[in-house]
Design a protein around this nucleic acid. Structure first.
Lengths: 339, 339
DNA sequence: CAGATTTCTGTGAACGTGCACAGATCAGCC
DNA sequence: GGCTGATCTGTGCACGTTCACAGAAATCTG
C-alpha cells in the first residue's frame, strides 16, 4: 500500500541502532528483554524495529549462541507404514506441541534405506539440531548406534533392549496381559494371538503379556506372528490361525490395525463377533471405532508419549540428567463390543 | 575404545588446517570440492579431517552463505485430521524424499490456532528456511496472506482462489465429473453428493465437477454439505441424505473417508451396495481398500503431489520463476465393486 | 560532598565459515 | 630468458549476532 523502498537486504541490529540513535549493544538488550535499558531508549528502539522491519537473523544467533532451537524427529519406518500407523502422527503432533510451546522447531527425518542412515548421521553431527526424538527404533538399528555415541540430548519412544538413552513408553506387557485376562475371564477356551513386529520391544512385550495371562493354557500354535502392525498382516494372520485351529474363540491382536484385519478375515470365514470369537486390539486408534462391532482395546496415549519425549529432551537441554529407567505413560483399557 | 581426549569443543576448519599443515582456505576448498588443490595437500587434509573428526558448522555456513538448506512443511489442519487424513502423510513423505535427495532438510510446522499463525510468521521471517511447502491452505487464510508477502520460494498443495504463488494440484473438477459420469452411465436415477470442506478449493471443485456431470438432472436437495473430509462427517451426511431423499440410488462422496462413513450409514439403513446404492469416493486412500465392498474412487497421487511441490520449491531456489498457472498432476479412476 | 553503588550505554572481540584477492610456483613457448 | 597463462596457496574481510568489559551518568549513603 505505502511506497516501500524496494530493499532487498534484511535489516540488521545495526540498522535499528542507527535508526534509534543508540548502539548495537542496547538494541540487543531490548531484543532479548534484558535489564538496564532506559525507558526512552527502549521506546526509540521498539519504534525503530517496526519501522525498519527488523527480525533477528537466526544463523548469526545460532553461531554465537552455539545452539539451534531445533529438535529432530526421526522416524525409522518404511514409508507406507508411516502413513498407515496413526500413532506416529499423534506422537509427532504431541511432540510438536510441547516443543513449539518452548520455542523449539521440529525437523523431521525419515529413515528408510541404508543411504538414509548415512545422511541422517551427517545431519545430526553437523549441529543442525540441539536434540532429537526417535520413534520406532529397532533392535540392532544402525541409526540407534549412531545416536548413542553422539552425546546429543535424545529421547526414544519405545525401548530397544540395551539402549542407554532416555526413553518414554507404555507398559506393553502389563497392558497386554490385562486385555488378555479379560478374554479369559469371559470364558473363552481357545485364545490365540496375532503377534506383530517382533523385531521391536513393543511387539515382544505384548507377546510376553499374552503368555503371562494364559499361563498353563498357552499353546504356541495359537500364536501367529506377522511382520508389521498393519491391516493386511492382520488378515493374513487370522486366516492362518483359523486354518490351523478352527476352534479358536478369542484373539488378541497386537494392534488395532491388525485386529481390524483379523475381524475382516473372521467375517470372511462366517464367524460372528463377539459371539463366536472375541477380539481385542491395542492402541485405541481410529481403527477401533471403525470396526464392527467396536473394538475393545488398550488406550495408548500416543500424543502423551510425544509430549513426554519432548519434555525429556527439553529437560536434558536444561541440563538435567536423563532418567535411565525411562518414563512410563499410563494406559487404560477401553471395552467396546468385540469382547 | 581408544583413549580419546575428553574434548568438549568441536573441531573447526582451523584445527584441520593446523593438523594438515596448510591454511584454512585450502581446507575449505577440499571440503567444498573445488579445483586447484594439489594431490598431496588434498590427501593430508582428508586425513586430518578424519583424525580430528571435523564436521562443518552449519550455523557458520548458513550465516556466510545466506541460506539454510531447509524447507518448511506447513500444514494447516486441526490436529486430529492431520492424523486421520492419509494424504497429508503421503504428501509429506513425497516432499521429504525429493528434498532430502537434494540435501535439503524439512522442518514441519503445524498451524492450528491463531497463536500458531503468529509463531509461524515469526519463524518464516527469521530466515530459518529457504522456502516452504504449504498444505491444505484455506480461502482467506491468515497464514496464506503472511506467506504471500514474504517473498520466499513457496509451493502450495492445492489452490486457494486468488493465490499468486506457485501451486501443484490435481484436476479435482474434471476427476469428480468423471466418477460421477460413471454413476450416471450405470443407470442411477437419483444421484446425490456428500460435499465436504467447501472452505477449500478441493471441496468446491469436486462439487463443481459433480454438477457438471449431472447437468439438468442436478437437484440441490441431493447435495449434503459437511465440514470436513472425515469418516464421521460421512456418516452424518449420508443419514441426512437418506432422511431427505430415501429414493437415492447413487452417491459421490467428496473423499474416501467420507465414503466409508456413508457406506456405514447405508448399511445401518439396510441398503446394499452396489445393488441399492452405488457409492464412489475420492483419493484412493487406504480407506478405499477397506470398505465393503471395495470403493470405486479417484486415485490421487499424494506422494507425487509432495514431490512436485518440492521440485517447484527447488526450482525457485535455483532461480527459476514459479509457474503461475500451477502444475497439474494426473489422476486415474479406480473401479472396484461399490459402483 | 566524597565515595560507593546502581543503572545505563558503547566498543571490540569472538563465533566458524566462504570468498575475493594477492602472491607464489610452475610449465609452455618463442 | 622473459612472457603468458594455468595451477596452487595464504590472508583478511564479511556475515549478524551475543557477551564481556569499560566507562559515564545517576542515585544512594554516611
Amino acid at each position: 500500500m505505502s511506497t516501500q523502498s524496494p530493499r532487498r537486504k534484511r535489516a540488521t541490529v545495526h540498522d535499528v541502532a542507527i535508526e534509534a540513535g543508540v548502539s548495537r549493544g542496547t538494541v540487543s538488550r531490548v531484543v532479548n528483554g534484558e535489564r538496564y535499558v532506559s525507558d526512552e531508549a527502549r521506546a526509540a528502539i521498539e519504534a525503530a524495529i517496526v519501522k525498519v522491519g527488523y527480525v533477528p537473523n537466526t544463523a548469526a544467533r545460532n553461531l554465537v549462541m552455539q545452539r539451534t532451537q531445533a529438535v529432530a524427529f526421526i522416524v525409522h519406518e518404511p514409508g507406507p507404514l508411516f502413513v498407515e500407523d496413526p500413532n506416529i502422527g499423534e506422537i509427532l503432533l504431541g511432540a510438536n506441541a510441547t516443543l513449539s510451546a518452548a520455542d523449539y522447531q521440529m525437523t523431521i527425518l525419515v529413515v528408510d534405506s541404508e543411504r538414509d542412515t548415512e545422511r541422517v548421521a551427517r545431519f545430526l553431527r553437523g549441529g543442525f539440531v540441539d536434540g532429537l526424538i526417535m520413534v520406532s527404533a529397532r533392535t540392532d538399528d544402525p541409526i540407534t548406534r549412531v545416536i548413542e555415541q553422539l552425546e546429543l540430548p535424545a529421547a526414544f519412544v519405545g525401548h530397544p533392549p540395551g539402549l542407554t538413552a532416555a526413553w518414554v513408553g507404555i507398559d506393553n506387557r502389563g497392558s497386554a496381559r490385562a486385555v488378555t485376562e479379560r478374554l479369559v475371564a469371559t470364558g473363552r477356551r481357545h485364545i490365540g494371538m496375532i503377534a506383530a513386529a517382533l523385531d521391536r520391544d513393543s511387539g515382544v512385550d505384548r507377546l510376553q503379556g499374552f503368555t503371562d495371562a494364559l499361563g498353563d493354557r498357552f499353546r504356541s500354535d495359537l500364536v501367529e506372528s506377522v511382520p508389521l502392525y498393519s491391516y493386511s498382516a492382520g488378515v493374513d494372520g487370522m486366516r492362518a490361525l483359523l486354518a490351523r485351529r478352527p476352534e479358536i474363540d478369542g484373539v488378541f491382536a497386537a494392534s488395532d490395525a491388525v485386529a481390524a484385519g483379523a475381524i475382516e478375515a473372521l467375517r470372511e470365514a462366517g464367524r460372528s463377533i463377539p459371539d463366536d470369537v472375541g477380539v481385542v486390539g491395542f492402541d485405541d486408534s481410529a481403527w477401533a471405532r471403525r470396526t464392527h462391532p467396536g473394538l475393545s482395546t488398550v488406550r495408548q496415549p500416543a500424543a502423551g508419549l510425544g509430549r513426554a519425549a519432548a519434555e525429556s529432551v527439553l529437560a536434558q537441554l536444561g541440563g538435567e540428567q536423563p532418567l535411565v529407567d525411562g518414563i512410563m505413560v499410563e494406559t487404560a483399557i477401553v471395552w467396546r463390543e468385540s469382547a
